[in-house]
Amino acid sequence: MGEPFFSEKGACGTVYANLLALDQGDPMRQIVEDLWARFQPSHDRHFLREARTSFQERFWEMYLFSALQDQGLNPQKGEGAGPDFSVLIEGRRYWIEAVAPGKGNGADQVPAMDFDCHEARLVPHAQIQLRYAASIADKAGKWPGWLEKGIVKEGDGFLIALNGFGCNEFMDATPPLFVRACLGIGHPTIAIDAKTLEVVDSFYAFSDSITKKSGEAVSTTPLLNPAFAHVSGVMHSLAFCGARRGSLLEGMEFLQNPLASIPFPGEAVAGFRRYSWSERGLTTINPEPAWDEDPDLEAE
């Protein structure tokens, strides 16, 4: 029996403290313990200490690791100086770097949800997409250094696994905000005939950047930029310990990079909702339901 995930020792963040105060059988605490039991053999010696103050980031690593296992892959923990995990598919290694951005700081931070507010307000799509775009750009920028140090190799694939819960407590959009932050997809738009007032077209506007309060424009088209061709794709989830799911794969999503130099085989994550981009637009492939999802349904 290994170390327990939760400990009374030392300073900790609010979420960790709240979970520590719960009974051991509480569902929110139990999902953490269950993930820890699966992840523990692969953790490094700093993991538990970091989890005390950066809970969502470490929770996401455990969740992602276990979800990949449930998908039938065999994730291996990476070196401390490199990406978090790797998987081997048909002889090619794909590295996976997990990131869980928070709300940020300053004028462009994502506002906290006000549960006592009883009036309609706009969902802060722009601020959330800024956090996503910044995280993707930051993680993508680490690849050349890893390559130079020999941690990763030419011919390896690279995936960024984004957990948005820390900056997105709100309802997601259609297409999801992480997809919009990668492909420049803006607001849904309709074209109206000025004479007849009939709707003649409907589409999503193209939005290649979001302007920060400082006036700086931040790109929302990283996966349309050849400079990001080393990124095979982006995984995404809003998973957190308070969400009760029938399967860890529920809510997992994958966006293929249309310009990837090393494409990732989407069928390897058939349990994820998958998105791909082409001249025809965005294509979505929904995961097939598990056989035990409806035990009363019998094959005819």
Rank of each mutant, 00 (worst) to 15 (best):
I136H: 04
A107N: 04
K103G: 10
A173M: 12
Q109W: 02
F6H: 07
Q256Y: 06
E50K: 14
A181Y: 05
L259H: 07
P27R: 11
F170R: 00
D208N: 15
V99Q: 01
R273P: 05
R38Q: 14
G242D: 01
A17E: 15
R121L: 12
G166D: 01
Q129G: 10
M28N: 12
Q109Y: 05
P175D: 08
E3C: 03
T283D: 08
A37N: 13
S7N: 08
I285M: 12
Q56N: 13
G104H: 06
N74H: 10
R280D: 15
G106R: 06
R274E: 11
E79A: 14
D116E: 12
F39G: 00
G2L: 04
V87T: 04
D108Q: 08
Q109R: 15
L248T: 04
Q76L: 14
A161D: 05
A37E: 15
D193Y: 04
G13N: 03
T211E: 15
P222K: 09
R38S: 13
L297Q: 12
A67C: 09
W143L: 11
S86W: 03
T14E: 14
L147T: 02
H236M: 06
Y132G: 06
V218N: 00
G184I: 08
P289S: 06
H125F: 12
W146C: 05
E33T: 13
G91I: 02
S276N: 10
A181S: 15
V199C: 14
Q71F: 07
G25K: 13
F85V: 03
F65H: 15
L183Y: 03
Y16A: 09
F5I: 02
E253R: 13
M62W: 06
A134W: 00
I160D: 00
N168A: 10
G150M: 09
S247Y: 13
G102I: 00
A98K: 01
V152K: 00
P226C: 13
G106F: 07
Q69N: 11
F228C: 11
P188H: 09
F170I: 02
A112F: 05
D116P: 00
S276Y: 08
N168T: 07
L20W: 04
P111Q: 08
M252C: 11
F39D: 04
V32A: 12
A239T: 03
